[in-house]
């Protein structure tokens, strides 16, 4: 499913003039099916507001632009939000706080029962099993445990299983790695890549972590003050783009080192992934591996 936003705007508390906040103003962007797409920007730049539009949690206002997700036209009043939400999965910040059921199995089944109430018992079990195993948990061991007796990392995995269990085509994650230790973070990103390769077509990830973006995303958009100020491959965004720095965001480490080297007259042209950077340096200095 392709996402096309055209001139999308949103104002919080529009009715009261003193409290109104323009969260989005004229955002236009296209996310192709199959992309690993990043969204960066500082707090209050409108990125969360934008992604909440994608599954209709925030509805497109009248005369506030256009938004289509696959065949769903979100400006249309008759848009089937339930069907849309089953195709666009959304994982919020600290998703473990949404757990509520008595057992892990029940919690993962929640979305499935809501979206596909007619599913047979066997199919349901099969899907729950697949989802839990995809996020790296042992189905047999964990299914009857209470979600509240799990560790933080496990809780987060269960919460994500609860979202991907309906097999969405697009998975949106808002700061999914927040609060994880470095090892947890690495494992988590590996999990996302696995999901993207095998299970969900499009992954959209909102993050402050520029290294995560440059390392994994095909393309990314930079939000600032409710607008998109840059969109493209990590290389395009993080090279010669001083306004990103001036907006209080960091460059990814690879981009920073490449830039400093260039200032010293050493040109290592690379795609800003760790591997790309290392092989560019290796190539330049004739070492190879």
């Amino acid at each position: 499913m392709r996402i096309v936003a055209e001139n999308l705007s949103y104002v919080y508390s529009e009715k009261s003039k003193s409290l109104a906040v323009q969260a989005l103003s004229g955002v236009s962007v296209t996310v192709e099916s199959g992309e690993f797409f990043g969204i960066v920007g500082k707090t209050g730049s409108g990125k969360s507001t934008f992604v909440q539009h994608l599954n209709g949690l925030i509805k497109v206002g009248k005369d506030k632009g256009k938004l289509t997700v696959g065949d769903f036209d979100l400006t249309d009043k008759r848009c089937d939000y339930r069907a849309l939400r089953s195709r666009v999965g959304m994982v919020f910040q600290y998703p473990e706080y949404q757990l509520f059921a008595e057992t892990v199995r029940e919690d993962v089944a929640f979305g499935l029962k809501n979206f596909m109430p007619d599913l047979g018992e066997n199919d349901m079990e099969e899907r729950i099993k697949t989802a839990l195993e995809l996020v790296g948990l042992d189905y047999e061991k964990i299914k009857d445990k209470s979600p509240f007796e799990l560790s933080g990392g496990q809780k987060r995995r269960v919460a994500i299983a609860g979202v991907i269990v309906t097999r969405p085509e697009i998975l949106v994650l808002d700061e999914p790695a927040a609060g994880l230790d470095p090892k947890g973070k690495r494992e988590f990103i590996a999990l996302l890549k696995r999901l993207h390769e095998k299970f969900v077509k499009t992954v959209i990830i909102v993050s402050h972590d520029m290294n995560l973006i440059s390392e994994n995303c095909d393309r990314a958009a930079v939000f600032s003050g409710g607008r998109i100020v840059a969109v493209g491959t990590p290389k395009e965004i993080f090279t010669d783009n001083e306004d990103i720095l001036s907006d209080g965001l960091d460059l990814p480490l690879t981009a920073y080192v490449t830039k400093r080297l260039k200032e010293q007259g050493i040109d290592v042209n690379n795609d800003l992934t760790e591997e790309g950077f290392i092989s560019a340096v290796a190539l330049k200095y004739g070492g190879g591996k």
Binding site: S86, G89, Y97, N114, G162
Partner: peptide, 10 residues
């Protein structure tokens, strides 16, 4: 926040 998260799960 929680209402939104559960709405996203249908």
């Amino acid at each position: 926040r929680i209402v939104k998260a559960q709405k996203a799960r249908g």
